[in-house]
Amino acid sequence: MSLALDLLLVGLRHVVRPRLRRAHGPLEARRAFDRAAAVTFRAPPFLCRIKDRAGLDRIHCGPRLHGKIILYFHGGGYVAGGPHTHAAMLGQLSGLSQLEVCAPAYPLAPEHPFPAAFEGAVASWEHLMAAGYAPSDVVLGGDSAGGGLALALLSYLCHAATPPAAAFAMSPWCDLSLSGDSLQGNAERDPLLPAERIRELVGYILPEGADDADPRVSPLFAEFPTCPPVLLQYSETEILFDDCRRMAERLRGFDADVLERRHPRAPHVWHLFQGWVPEARQSLREIADFARAAFAAR
């Protein structure tokens, strides 16, 4: 493990996690994430970010393969983040894969509670189909809450018999019923996420009476008939470790080809720190190779 990653873990544990513990609600957390992304995440040279006719961000960096695309859903606990917070990382992924990335700004809670994010994800997929892409021209991806959203959309598309070429998820949040043992077992080990506030977060996302095991928000309980290959990357110290581990088992139960990559100590969605820690670039390179291989297999 690199010295840069060691230093990052110290900073997250002693600076960022205490601030998340003290944040006064989702709007403050959203503003803090925006500020941190603007000064911390390092964009690669020649990053290009534009909006298409539907208002979806299109991100690329360098030459790209025509007619193939990654549809990516950002993380932020369904209450924060956007294409702007993730553009630097997605630019790096685009450069490594030579694929364009479409990054929707899906509706955020608490202003837009469940199922608004899922409906936004479906609308983004339908926009790409209307723009001339076939399902086999698209790889789904996402991180944290966005990783769960990508997997929920994957289930929807599998049921519709229009699965994408493949899907990947970085540290996905797959279970809003909060049944994973690692929420307690890794509460002190996780250098970033404060486990004691996650139930409060669920309360902002789900309206009163909503089912926290609904597959549209908790894909751990979804079905995945005729599932394409899936890559899951996550850390063994995360409070979401059991979400990810059980998600891999769930997918394999539907005969999916699942590639798991567990890091022993990296923080939640360490990929965002590309440009600072070599482990982030290495993991993005693996995703890039996975996406290109999925298209080559078609």
Rank of each mutant, 00 (worst) to 15 (best):
E119M: 11
H268A: 02
P63F: 03
G142S: 01
L176D: 00
L93S: 09
R64P: 00
Q233R: 11
W270P: 04
A169V: 03
S124P: 02
G132W: 11
A165V: 01
R292N: 11
R31D: 13
A29P: 13
R49H: 08
I198K: 02
L128Y: 02
I59A: 03
H66S: 15
E238G: 14
L284W: 10
R189H: 13
D257T: 09
A256Y: 05
G142C: 03
P113A: 09
T226G: 12
V230S: 09
S171N: 01
A23I: 09
E236S: 15
A288L: 10
P44G: 12
A38F: 00
I70C: 06
E279V: 01
A54G: 10
A23Y: 00
P104H: 03
T226N: 15
D243L: 03
E111D: 15
R22P: 05
D52T: 01
H86N: 14
D181C: 01
A213G: 10
S171P: 00
F290M: 08
L56Y: 04
E223Q: 14
Y106R: 03
M170V: 15
Q233M: 14
S182T: 11
S2M: 07
R292E: 09
R49Y: 05
F221P: 04
R292Q: 15
E236R: 14
H86L: 02
A105S: 07
A123V: 10
G11H: 15
F273L: 05
